[in-house]
């Protein structure tokens, strides 16, 4: 079901963007470089990509391209998930290269890394006393690598599509690429990637 939904969404997006009648020159709206978003504070709301069903953040842009943000995520009780909250701290580099897609300014290259801390009694940030020293690394902390494609909707508002890879996924893929190639589609990336989406508003 999930695969079918993703396929339909992907095909729909591909069709609308690839064959748009938008001019190939500058977008009708102001250049991204004029955006008040630059070197500004922003609020962000995201869903998925391992950061929660909903994840709200406050961020700051430095030197045009470097983003730092801190956020809070939440997952309600679901059939396949315990109710839990999480906090994150992330850095992202947004390359200023901009292309016009369907009349919108798109910055297709943005990469980042986040530290995520899950809050639940089944997770621990420091090793419980019952364990010998060094028995486990903390299970509450994860590192998440991500790629984003960002679309400027208005000078203040940006939406994005996010693809993330969990720490263990990155390590395992680098270490044993043939396993993932043999068992998963798209060069094995299907086995380690997750997607999400979000929007930002610049103050």
């Amino acid at each position: 079901m999930r695969f079918t939904l993703s396929l339909l969404m992907g095909l729909g997006l591909f069709s609308s963007l690839a064959w748009s009648d938008a001019p190939e020159t500058d977008a009708s709206q102001s250049s991204w470089l004029d955006s008040p978003y630059l070197d500004n504070t922003y609020a962000e709301l995201q869903s998925g990509s391992l950061l929660g069903l909903v994840h709200g953040s406050l961020g700051k842009i430095f030197a045009h391209n470097h983003h730092l943000k801190a956020g809070f995520g939440y997952v309600p009780k679901m059939d396949d998930h315990a109710e839990m909250s999480m906090v994150s701290f992330a850095y992202r580099y947004q390359n200023p290269w901009t292309i016009d897609v369907a009349g919108k300014s798109v910055q297709p290259f943005s990469v980042g890394v986040a530290v995520l801390r899950g809050e639940h009694r089944r997770l621990f940030a420091t090793l419980p006393e019952k364990y010998p020293d060094g028995y486990y690394t903390p299970t509450a902390f994860r590192i998440i690598f991500n790629y984003q494609a960002n679309v400027q909707i208005t000078p203040e508002i940006e939406v994005y599509f996010d693809v993330s890879i969990l720490d263990v996924g990155m390590v395992s893929y680098v270490r044993e690429p043939e396993f993932f190639n043999d068992n998963y589609e798209f060069l094995g990336l299907e086995g380690i990637t997750n997607w999400g989406f979000g929007a930002r508003y610049a103050f």
Binding site: L13, G48, S49, L51, D79, H81, V101, P108, F161, W195
Partner: peptide
């Protein structure tokens, strides 16, 4: 544009929508 759209479509198809690393399904 076409390449970007293709990459986006492939990403959507290839990836899973996951709310956290701690799902149990």
């Amino acid at each position: 544009k076409i390449i970007f759209s293709l990459l986006l479509a492939v990403s959507l198809v290839a990836c899973q929508y996951e709310v956290s690393p701690w799902s149990t399904d």
